[in-house]
Nucleic acid binder design. Sequence first.
DNA 1: TCATAAACGCAAATTATTTGCTTTTGTGAC
DNA 2: GTCACAAAAGCAAATAATTTGCGTTTATGA
Lengths: 195, 195
Amino acid sequence: MAGREGPRPGGRSARVQASVHAAVQALMTRMERAAITIPAIAAEAGVTPSTIYRRWGDIQELLADVAVERLKPDMVPIDTGNGGNDLLAWAEQYAEEMSSKPGREMIRDVLASQDGSGAYQCCNFTRQQIEVIAARAQLRGEGFPDVDSIMDRVVSPIMYRILFGEAPDAAHVARLVAGAMELVSPARASVDEPA
Amino acid sequence: MAGREGPRPGGRSARVQASVHAAVQALMTRMERAAITIPAIAAEAGVTPSTIYRRWGDIQELLADVAVERLKPDMVPIDTGNGGNDLLAWAEQYAEEMSSKPGREMIRDVLASQDGSGAYQCCNFTRQQIEVIAARAQLRGEGFPDVDSIMDRVVSPIMYRILFGEAPDAAHVARLVAGAMELVSPARASVDEPA
DNA sequence: TCATAAACGCAAATTATTTGCTTTTGTGAC
DNA sequence: GTCACAAAAGCAAATAATTTGCGTTTATGA
């Protein structure tokens, strides 16, 4: 990702980056996304446009950079005392946040950037949240599915529907979580095949 | 989606649309995506830039329009004589096509457009392919999962990994298909819970 | 065949982007 | 601390893209 952690983190570069990021977020509250231009951001940030062009290249990269930062989770998944419930609570909140207009815009911004590292980072943010839930479950001695399986069975369908169709409702999210948790304690299981 | 099926489908509008679409595809074979501009497309298409601006608004909408057209499936899923195998064959091909550079670019183009109808259409293309497989399975008297379940358990994880991480390999796709097919014939099932 | 309106072409005006050069400002050597 | 250096920013001119007003072409349906 462009513009992240330059070689001189304490100085002017950092100030400019912070100021530009803040300007983007400020403009986003004031106007629609499509109307935001680099000259406008530069003016808001008190910076010359060529600075932004040289550091980020184009507006997609800049918006992706800002979106990744905003998508960074700011708290630990709530602890309900049970892995399955933790996952359900987390997934409900995740689906809601990502379905919101700002959420969808941030995802779109991240995916629109040329270099895929922003998307990869976001995926890792999510994965880390789930790892926290999984680790807690393991500490309690509960069974809990692979993190990869959670990504496949819970996160992916939520994201797919947000991106390609209609946002999933609470019932659907619950069904997804149940389907994932079946991997560790199948609803109806025995020692051998019936056929 | 802008520019699709105008009110005068037989005339000049249609010719311009075809010519512009062809120009976009031609330029894509000659230069990298980021370098394609509307004036360049207009020149290639033998059209004035303002025509494109007025019909599509901006390059994202135009590229999305072209991408949707290219993502339209051009053949029926192959018939292996068995629903599960049909699904596996289809999913492998889908994963491969969508993981390719042109595939990823088309998906990105579709998702980047303002109006979400392109993404919705693409989702429907996929759904329809799966419906064909499901209908054949039903005709044969086989059990086959809900199309929605296939979207959740097979399509979504493939797409998520392509968009946010690394492309899924064949083994992973096979695992996803197996996980989906378990919905109809669980690998290990009985009449009641063990606990 | 004619009236109509949608879509296009053209060109001028505006706005965004690129680029060469200068100045500022952190950083590390001394 | 001071100085030399290089990275990043500012400025302004040049280039390129976008918007817009207006005249012209061309499907469509009466």
